[in-house]
Write a protein that binds this DNA or RNA. Structure first.
Lengths: 210, 210
DNA sequence: GTCTATAAGCAGATAGAC
DNA sequence: GTCTATCTGCTTATAGAC
């Protein structure tokens, strides 16, 4: 693996451990085992490294949300969606606590993040709409209600990992992940028809022991 | 007003505008119109200024949550609670985006924040329990369901202002506030008996035009 | 209480040898 | 591609005059 990739990997590890704002280029270079000069050969500045990490995050995230979109939407797909996205958010957790600080330092990144966020919320909306069209939403509240559902899903998802870290969690345990999934699911659960809700809860449990 | 208070006020303004991590003691002193030396006469270090701001935030927050606790819980009280807490979060918005960064720099503050958070979640739980005991929860899901509701309320509340800022909102408009209140209320709304839900929605509207 | 001046340290970034 | 050495500019914080 080349130095460029090793620098990216080290940056991810350090920023997850210490927070993005506490990690400088000298530190990254030292822990990677390269010189500052070499780091600046591979990256024009610090922001470029963060952008490379965001690229990877965005790629993985879009992949998870767009995978397996056949209708009717299976409970297994929804369960898998919950698990994979939380795992993703944990692996890039530096980004989800201190997002605003990163975006203020780099307007280019800010634009990309806002676009991804808009896309994600729209995608969550269309997933919920799909569930309604499949006849699995018991108390549909119209387009406005579904939009609110989608946004709350995004708010819980994008902030659960930050909440864990603020609460003092340094290493995630299965229980922390499960708790987050329950929080997320409890936003949409009251609107689902009972058998569909039960099927998703079962699928979530099954995912842990495949 | 003495320099100490003016320094606190300036810090709040600057940190809300630029983010806590971008505001140094020199800048604070310059914008307050005092010397760095004078700033360090009033505060031992930068963290002490942030702690003073947190003290004010905590005091206001506890006050709003503990005010008007007569049972049965009136819809007006719940509506007022939504409005006041969002207003509060906006006025101290530097704290709610970048919380983790602040806590990592100051372990004393971290302890205080975690205590406040635990207290708030427990308080939200007991508010929801009170609504259930008043007979206004249509589909009670037991203690576990109420705990999940309380935590989701906290997650939405404590991150709504950050979401606005990440989305590019620099000055809050009434519509942004209303949207946040709707997001928050939509977490608990599906569990309320219809007349109680309607009364709260009405009270929220009335609060805007007293 | 308030000031000026400055110390000490670390950040991001670059020049130029190899 | 990778290195060493260094520049510049910033930060927090302090010393000592007034």
């Amino acid at each position: 693996m080349g130095n460029r990739e090793r620098i990216i990997e080290t940056t991810l590890r350090l920023m997850n451990e210490l927070g993005a704002e506490a990690v400088g280029t000298n530190r990254i270079a030292a822990e990677t085992g390269v010189s500052p000069g070499n780091l600046y050969y591979h990256f024009g500045n610090r922001e470029e490294i963060v952008r490379a990490l965001f690229d990877a995050l965005e790629h993985e995230f879009r992949d998870v949300l767009q995978r397996d979109t056949e209708r009717p939407l299976a409970p297994q797909r929804i369960a898998a969606f919950y698990l994979r996205t939380f795992d993703l958010a944990w692996r890039y957790r530096f980004f989800f606590s201190g997002t605003l600080g990163l975006l203020r330092r780099d307007p280019v990144l800010a634009g990309r993040y806002q676009a991804l966020q808009s896309w994600a919320i729209a995608e969550l909306d269309s997933i919920a709409t799909g569930i309604a069209e499949d006849g699995n939403l018991a108390h549909p509240r119209g387009a406005e209600g579904i939009a609110s559902l989608a946004l709350n899903t995004w708010l819980i998802w994008s902030n659960w990992i930050g909440f864990l870290q603020i609460s003092g969690i340094a290493e995630i345990r299965r229980a922390d992940m499960t708790a987050g999934i329950n929080q997320l699911f409890d936003v949409i659960a009251p609107y689902l028809v009972p058998p569909f809700e039960a099927a998703i809860r079962r699928a979530i449990t099954d995912e842990w022991a495949p």
